[in-house]
Amino acid sequence: MTSKDVQKVVPFEGSKLSKKEQMASMFNDIAGRYDFMNHFMSLGIDVWWRKVALRKLKPLAPKTLLDVATGTGDVAIMAQKMLHPDQITGIDISEGMLEIGREKVAKAGFSDKITLQTGDSETISFPDATFDAITAAFGVRNFENLEKGLGEMCRVLKPGGMAVILEFSNPTAFPVKQLYNFYFRYITPAIGKLVARNKAAYSYLPSSVKEMPQGQEMCDILKKVGFQDVTCKTLTFGICSVYCATR
């Protein structure tokens, strides 16, 4: 697995659109059912994963936070509740996801603290060293160019700041590996077709996870683009990984 392998995985094989354009189209289509699918398919464990990741930032007590690939804003809202920063900015290429996120932010009473805006992870529209902390949950494998996106995250992070990346990974221990692969290969696309009415999106998910660099390889890429003190912690038998890195 390399960063180039995951870049080749796209939702719509044969499409002339770039991966970035395909991702925006896919997420716009499933935006209304995205949150339900996340919680349903993970049996709610995804909420705990996000909490574990955000706890990594507590000692830092960041005042400004950027949430990359923010989607419907789950991490941004949870970060405001747990870390109480002065300002959180969430960026995503899917306006459909952001619209739902803004409604959730307003409902939570955080409109003065959280701003969600259209943004490309590979050309982040902020100056160097802008944020105390950066989060990205289940989004970096969707980057069209993984190294470029991670490099941009490093660029806008202040020296001494921390990035926390939460991403799916492939378990290796028996029988979790076998059960996980069966679920992802057969059950996930079927649920996606039935509930989200988009089989392509939930066929893309296992393919992208399979090709995503993880563990030491992902740590090496983070170091390559400029991060330091990189660590990786696996969660739930290796189904998910939390990467922490400082600038």
Rank of each mutant, 00 (worst) to 15 (best):
I30N: 07
R33Q: 14
W48V: 15
Q216Y: 12
Q228F: 06
T135N: 12
F138I: 00
G14D: 01
E99N: 14
C219G: 04
A245Y: 13
E211C: 05
T72L: 11
Q216H: 06
L57H: 05
R247I: 04
A137W: 02
Q117K: 10
S18I: 09
C219S: 13
F143A: 12
G160F: 04
L157C: 07
H39K: 12
F237R: 04
F27W: 03
K223E: 15
L83F: 06
G44C: 06
Y243G: 09
L65I: 08
S125Y: 00
N38I: 09
T64K: 10
A201K: 07
P171M: 03
K177H: 10
M218W: 09
F12L: 10
D35R: 02
K8I: 03
A133V: 11
K113Y: 13
K16R: 14
K58F: 04
G226Y: 08
P213E: 13
G119Q: 03
F184A: 08
F143C: 12
T188G: 03
L222V: 08
A108V: 09
W48L: 12
L235K: 02
F143N: 08
Q178L: 12
D67W: 01
L116C: 05
G160H: 05
C240L: 10
V9E: 01
F36D: 06
F138L: 05
K148F: 05
F168P: 12
E152D: 11
Y183G: 04
G192D: 04
G149L: 09
V176W: 01
I134T: 14
